[in-house]
Structure formats: C-alpha cells, structure tokens
Nucleic acid binder design. Structure first.
Lengths: 259, 259
DNA sequence: CAGTGGTCTAGACCACACT
DNA sequence: GTGTGGTCTAGACCACTGC
C-alpha cells in the first residue's frame, strides 16, 4: 500500500508497468487483483485466472501470486476451491442468507428455525439528513434511498431496521423489487446493482423502545432493545449502506467471537 | 488436527516420532508448538527458538515452520518481530489493558480518557451453580471463585460485572491481590497463575436494570443495559472464565467489526 | 486424463535489530 | 557483523475436480 521505494526496485524483479506502488511484490499483485475486482473486470461468482496464468501475466512466481490470493481469500474477497480454481466471493447463489446478521436464537439446536419473514414497511427517496450524509460520504441533501422493514422469526417480529443507501448507486430500486426478491438484500445489491458489501462496522447499545419501535415489534414502550448501527463498505472502504436496527433479545442474542 | 493418514506418511517426509497426528506437515509442527505452549515450556513473553532452529529440530524446511508460525501468529498466540525473533504473546507488559473489552466512548477522539477506576465489590469462594459449572466444564458443586466489580470511566460507573473462575486453577486469589494489581485482570492471571486467555465468545442482549444493577451503576431501575455474557478460553479451547457484564451505554458503545 | 489449488523443499537475497 | 524474520524464486509432488 505505502508507495515506499526501497533500492530493491526493478533490478531484481520486473515490476509491472501499471503497478503504482512499490514494497512487497505480493502486495502489488494484491493491489492489481483488487483493482480488477473494483473495476468489475471479474464479477462475483466468476472464476478468475489460475495462479500459474496470473504468475505469467504479472511476471512473478506462482508463490508470490499465491501469497496475494491467500490474503484476499482471508478477507473473503476470493474463495479458493481445490481442483476447481479461485472464484470471486459472492452473496448470490449459496444460501448464506445473512452476511452480517449476528442475531441467533437462544436455543442453539434450532438451526433450522426457518427463514425470516421479511416485510417492507416503507421505501422512499429523500434528501440525505446531515448525519446520514456524513457516514455515507455524501453531501447533505444528496438523494438517498430509505428503507424500513421488519424481520420476524416464526411469526414473532424481532428486528425493526431502517437503512439508507446512496441514491446514485441504487437507481430503480423500489419496494416491489425488494419484496419480490426472495434472497437476502445483499445478494440483490450484488446481482442488480453490482454493489458488493465487503466489510462492516457496528456500534451496539441498549435503549428503550419508543412508540414506533413498540408498535412494529409489538412490545410495550420502554422495553429494552438492542440497537445496532451498521455501516457497510464496498471495495476500497467506500461506505455504501447505513443501517439502524432494533433487535428484540427475548429469545435471541447477538453472538460475537473475540480473538 | 485430524489423524487422517494418507499414503503420504513418512516415505517422503521424516515425521517426527512424537507427532501424534498426520496430515499437512506444517499442521503437525503447529501442534507441536501448541503443545509446548500449553505445557508451559515457553511462557508468555518468552523468545522461542528461531525458525531455522525449529526447522532443524523438527527435520523440516524453514518454510514449513514458517507456515506453522504464521497461523499461530494470526491467532495471536505468537508475535513475530523482524530482526528480533518470535515471542509468545502476552497480556503482561504492553499496555493493551483490556484484551476483550469492546466498549468505547462515543467521542472517538477521547482516546486517552484515562484508565478505568476499578473497584472490587466482592470476591468469594463458593460451590458452582449448575449453569456456571456447565459452561466452565466443572461439576456442579465444584469450588469456584466469584468476583464482582464495577468499572468507572471518569468517575461514572459504567460496567458492573460478575465473573467466575475455576477454584482449582486460581488458588490463593483474593480481593487484596486483585485490588493491588494495577494492570488488567488477564495480565494477573498470566503472571500469577500461568493462565493465558486466548479466545472468547460473547452473547449480547438488552435488558432492564434490576435493583442491584441500578444501585451499583447509579441509574434507575428499568434503565436499558447491555448485557454481555462472555466465556473466555485458554489453550486447547478450555473454558476458564465466565463473565456476566452489564454495560451502561449512554456515553459508550460496543464496537464490532464484521468481515 | 489434464488442470487446479495445496504442500514442501532449498536456496537466494533483503530489512531490521542488537552488539 | 551476525542473526532474525520477510520476500521471492523454481521446481517437485500430492489431492481434488471434471472431462
């Protein structure tokens, strides 16, 4: 990443012409692959060229390409499959429904409590409030799409969430298309708008249900709820979604692993 | 880990005599290093033998040792320092006070809001209740140590937590020794009891403050609090601590990164 | 069978830290 | 300078997948 240029330069290794940065060769390769992903040259689900092919293309050894791909795989941007090849990670296909949702039922066994029932409450375009614009890297007043929905598990409303998306990247997204889409939201973003969420930051706190939350989650005002504010990022750490959720944690909990 | 024995066996590579498992050589090396760590052969903070030394000892190439160490470093069990060597990770020394605490002040800038004020409320030995015994892998009625304490930030009580430790592993731990210890708790566990926490799982939910919580956190009954139940593990995924915390999230939030 | 990723080796050179 | 980890190479063989 850092464009430091130690005396190593190109005397020993033939740095590719297009590589803008120096420092470890495998980092340069990683950058080049990342650029291709960002540019949409290889789309989610695609098979990318083999390590040997890439090694030849970049004029480095297979081991160097391997190390670059290793890191990208560790970041879940690529997926390796022995004997088949390396693929661009995708939310579509595979039934990994909820990419970032950490809420799980208390009963550990009930793995198949069935999918959530999704219902879109609202979906409208509006001018971005200051705080939303700030976190999405927009200007106040820019067009954003706001969606409000409720997720229910086994008939019990459990999650109320609002989400905001940059209007420019999601032209044509309507409540109908959201409702029609069976799978998870991130899969739709990927297939229909070419936006792949890669990473997210969350801020959690406990707060009391206000009138609106109480209504949609069918609890009394003041019920403690888990507030989860999430900012999701595409490639290049570009924020593309702000989500504010309220989770009912009577029969579910937010699971986290620390290491 | 899995003792699968493909025909590869020792025709090509001289498997070490003591190695109980087959499959990738570097995994075996990793296991051997792990065993040494668990046995206390190399203690937290220690410099372990160089890659070349280990390669010779295990009769494999440096690259294979390197891959094993890479994984252990990724799991934060070892720390590599270029030019110096590879060390056993430690909570002592370094000022990384709170290993697993994810609660941070809302004001992002206030990095140095000063250390928390710790006060031990209670510290006693008792027979493990059923639920505590289960998560710690003990039998109901086994001796456990229970500690209750409050953490305050800038004078404001913010965290009330109870923690349970297996009595057998923490003989001689008293409120005095806890109070006397300046640093974080995990550092004390390491230096005084040879117990290093490696990983933890947490379950979060929102709930209303009961009478006791309200008293210690100086809030009114019913105030929404973030409940954090943590199980911390030593080497070998052995549970060694159960912690139940209640966090006041008025001016702080629980931060999480998803990827 | 051919092609892919996965493992392992042996040796080279670089960057860094301590002495 | 010596020794350590960090990078890079070239080539070998294995394991899995799909034709």
């Amino acid at each position: 990443m850092a464009p430091t240029a130690p005396p190593t330069a190109d005397s020993a290794h033939p740095n590719e012409a297009a590589a803008p940065a120096f420092s470890p060769l495998y980092q340069q390769i990683k950058s080049l692959i990342l650029q291709a992903l960002q540019a949409g040259q290889w789309k989610p689900g695609d098979l990318i060229p083999s390590e040997i092919e890439l090694a030849g293309r970049f004029r480095v050894s297979q081991g160097t390409v391997r190390k670059a791909i290793d890191e990208l795989a560790a970041e879940h941007l690529l997926v390796r499959r022995q004997g088949r090849g390396t693929f661009v990670a995708t939310h579509a296909e595979q039934q990994v429904q909820y990419r970032f949702l950490r809420l799980v039922p208390d009963a550990a066994d009930a793995a198949s409590q069935g999918p959530a029932q999704r219902s879109i409450i609202d979906c409208k375009r509006l001018r971005a409030p200051a705080d939303v614009a700030r976190t999405l890297g927009l200007r106040t007043g820019d067009a954003v799409l706001q969606v409000r929905r409720v997720l229910a598990f086994q008939g019990v409303p459990t999650i109320l969430e609002d989400l905001w998306l940059p209007g420019s990247a999601f032209k044509g997204l309507t409540a109908e298309r959201l409702a029609a889409h069976q799978g998870a939201m991130y899969a739709l973003f990927e297939t229909e708008f070419g936006v792949r969420m890669v990473r997210a930051d969350e801020r959690l706190r406990a707060l009391a249900a206000d009138e609106a939350a109480a209504k949609w989650l069918q609890v009394s005002i003041g019920t403690p709820l888990l507030s989860v504010e999430r900012v999701a990022y595409t490639y290049q750490d570009t924020p593309m979604e702000l989500r504010r959720g309220l989770y009912l944690t009577d029969t579910h909990h937010y699971r986290n692993s620390l290491s």
